[in-house]
């Protein structure tokens, strides 16, 4: 008779694991860095994508941010978490890129996940909370993207990191190199602007 073996679930990757991987990557262990990329690629990509509103640009920026982070890994002391540090690199790179790209606004608006159409919150929002009952999801997305692109880079970044990525004010402050008060005021101002621009869809 076999004894029952209780299998302990594997602990979720925490900051300690990240640090161990970073130490290995600092000794030029690319397998360790590959693991770090896999952990944070989606978040970094999403942030850059929402800032640039273009998949190709987001792809380039994400790759370059991770390559830059690898080359600068020797300077990483572990004062902040690895993901805050990578985010900071990606954010600065994206803001610099957007300043150069000022006159070339592109948007790819057909990347909406199919699941969005079945999300009850969104369906309710569109069918009940807007005066335009015939408004399609794609139309609302288009208006939202246009409104987001009207915000300054710093305000847009604050909204993306908080309302889309779900980061705390403190984390955003560490990433954007500013204090929590500045983050709050940027969020407040950005939401006020978005409310004004999307007023028709909020009644």
């Amino acid at each position: 008779m076999h004894a029952l073996r209780i299998v302990e679930p594997e602990p979720a990757p925490g900051p300690e694991d990240d640090l161990a991987l970073v130490r290995r990557a600092q000794r030029e262990d690319t397998a360790a860095y590959d693991e770090l990329v896999r952990r944070y690629q989606e978040r970094v990509y999403a942030t850059v994508y929402h800032m640039t509103a273009n998949h190709e640009d987001a792809n380039d920026m994400t790759q370059e941010a991770f390559i830059k982070a690898y080359r600068a890994l020797k300077t990483f002391k572990g004062d902040s978490s690895f993901y805050t540090w990578v985010y900071r690199i990606a954010v600065n790179k994206t803001i610099n890129f957007l300043k150069q790209r000022k006159n070339r606004v592109q948007m790819s608006l057909n990347d909406m996940d199919f699941n969005a159409e079945h999300d009850p919150v969104l369906v309710a929002l569109i069918s009940h909370n807007t005066p335009r009952r015939d408004l399609s999801l794609a139309e609302l997305q288009e208006k939202l993207n246009a409104a987001l692109q009207k915000l300054s880079e710093d305000h847009r970044m604050a909204v993306i990191l908080h309302d889309i990525q779900g980061l705390s004010h403190e984390e955003i402050g560490a990433i954007m190199d500013c204090n929590v008060g500045t983050v709050r005021s940027r969020l407040f101002y950005a939401r006020q602007q978005l409310q004004a621009w999307l007023a028709d869809y909020l009644k």
Binding site: Y45, Y49, H50, H55, A58, N59, D111, M112, D113, N115, A116, D119, V121, L122, L125, L137, L140, Q141, L144, L148, V159, I160, D163, I164, L194, L198, Y201, L202
Partner: peptide, 11 residues
Amino acid sequence: RIIALKRFEQP
């Protein structure tokens, strides 16, 4: 909630 729409955009 409207901003949350952006979460559904995928590569």
